[in-house]
Design a protein around this nucleic acid. Structure first.
Lengths: 346, 346
DNA sequence: CTGTTAGCGCATTCAC
DNA sequence: GTGAATGCGCTAACAG
């Protein structure tokens, strides 16, 4: 009635009538073992359903062949796509990816970090809830595991990062609206404390400023209601906008829904352009123009950079010493209908 | 220039001038340790940035406090929501959830299963690529880890499962279309080898049969093009449908796009009803009626059932002996506009 | 309250 | 080709 534990290497050895070493050799490739013994041991392994205990290997001090990924949410398409891409890289490197979600809570984030370190992951990918968190920064600097930040950098730390060109993407998007003849472009968003959002705001400001237009920014959009309120206020104001630039996915959708509800057509009298693509952007009417981020590329590049860090045999010293790399990935403006370009319906 | 390993318990003990056991006690709650020593040890732990090595604990034979989740894809909203719910349960039970994706490939699935077993997860949640896979079934029956299947059961095995009422949901949906006066209902889908899809087909058949209507089934929808071809063929046929019942998310969206492209209005002349809800279903025009699955509930219930399996102190014997449980979760018909009900725009 | 010791499962010397 | 012995970091008896 005790826990019927999984078979161990020793048990396999006993059953096969060989020593531990031989079994160890068999499960690690079968070099230096006579074909006969090899076959016999393999048969026993199979019969017993033996699986090497990863924990024991880890204890020997080798790599654990696991890497961690800490993201705000698994249900967010952006991050789950990143995760999927990172997992592919991990698998290619014979490693396991462990994903944990923080709901953007700094406390949970640090907890997750500790859990992963306890599991001795070989490296860590993290999308920090707060790019300038003192606590996170200190923790990260003390940790000896290689870390790569994704989507958002960690300031004042030595960790490399892979992020989108938020600034350039937002500036180009705003310029695009200006080229469409819009000269009253309102910028809407929520979560303005996030690094990504701040960069996009900078981009919007830069473009609007360069064109000599006025900046209209509302960072209070958190749900449909707040979007409705914000947009109605703008329309009732002295200078109603003729374009909306939304800085994040949910805001874009809320804005679309509000305009649809108010029976205001797009792109005229109001154009809509959003940062970050989403699945049904082409199916909505009008189809929604967006700044598209290379989501998979971010996950992949970050994971690859991470593996470089602990696979650099010759130059491991260099890698360690090298100052953090900041990889910026280009965004792409997808011209559909809502901004005034003629989109392809499907 | 060697790998600067993480500090160990012994090092903490030495620095603090105490024995291993004391340190062990401190990191496990600090019972039976004098406040003075406790403080000192804690200070050393902090100074060294010590984190207990999970692997060593595992080796002692205790629970690893990790559970595995094997799903087809992390990028699929259905599964990522499940994962998120499962993770919440895991966290509540002081455990770590390890998610791996298989892309519905049986080979990858078994590989992942082995990896997770190697890591000695305490239990396993799995959405099998193939409900009747012989190999999976055998493997699963031999494994001693508790397993719960999610979304799709594993036939001929002793594993419990948590799945939606696919049959009842599909039957009710079809009946609903019939009540709307549709008497030529075509059923469209892809991936007809999946258990879930087959159940939904059964449901459709049951309702259509009971009403004395004819069954029109097309299981070849894999992308927009195939949907377009299928729908155009139906419309050009002798008996054009006045309703489309789509059995999975992507098919629903393809069907919507095709109808939109062909300028065919919904719900008349053709009504649309889909199985499985999706994010912008309310934003599309018309809003799309669907059979909604309790996604989070599935993940949560499965994880809870799993934890029951190895937390049943008193009745662990019972749990082990008990025949597998099959938990069926109710679906809900969400009446929006595309089926003929008046949906709320937002 | 605190320290000593043994052993978890495995890879790895080093002999044979 | 093969096996016996050692130790990885930690917890759990068992003394003191």
């Amino acid at each position: 009635m005790k826990k019927n534990r999984l078979p161990t290497l020793s048990e396999v050895a006993r059953q096969a009538g060989v020593g531990n070493t031989t079994v160890s050799r068999v499960i690690n490739g079968g070099e230096r073992v006579s074909p006969k013994t090899l076959a016999r041991v393999r048969r026993v392994i199979d019969a017993l359903g033996y699986r090497p205990n990863q924990a024991a290997r880890v204890l020997k001090g080798d790599r654990t062949k696991t890497i961690g990924l800490i993201i705000p949410s698994m249900a967010d398409p952006f991050f789950s796509s990143c995760a999927e891409a990172a997992q592919a890289v991990a698998r290619a490197n014979d490693s396991l990816l462990i994903v944990t979600a923080t709901q953007n809570d700094p406390h949970t984030e640090i907890e997750n970090l500790n859990v992963l370190v306890s599991h001795r992951v070989d490296g860590l990918l993290i999308a920090p809830a707060n790019s300038r968190s003192q606590a996170l920064c200190e923790l990260v600097n003390r940790l000896s595991v290689p870390i790569v930040a994704i989507d958002r950098p960690i300031f004042n730390s030595s960790v490399s990062s892979v992020v989108s060109e938020n600034f350039k993407g937002a500036r180009a998007a705003t310029q695009h609206l200006i080229e469409h003849g819009c000269e009253r472009i309102a910028c809407l968003t929520g979560e303005s404390t996030l690094f990504t959002i701040q960069e996009r705001i900078r981009g919007y400001r830069a473009a609007v400023g360069a064109a000599g237009l006025t900046c209209t920014l509302n960072t209070s959009i958190k749900d449909y209601r707040s979007a409705e309120y914000a947009i109605e206020s703008l329309l009732d104001g002295p200078n109603p906008p003729n374009a909306l630039f939304t800085l994040k996915n949910s805001t874009t959708i809320y804005a679309f829904e509000v305009l649809q509800k108010l029976n205001i057509a797009m792109p005229k009298p109001i154009a809509l352009l959003g940062f970050d693509d989403f699945e049904l952007a082409t199916t909505l009417r009008p189809s929604v123009s967006v700044v598209q981020q290379p989501v998979e590329d971010i996950g992949r590049a970050a994971a690859e950079l991470l593996f470089e860090k602990f696979l650099g045999t010759a130059s491991s010293q260099q890698v360690r010493t090298a100052r953090p790399r900041r990889i910026l990935l280009e965004t792409q403006l997808i011209r559909r209908s809502s901004c005034g370009c003629t989109g392809h319906p499907a």
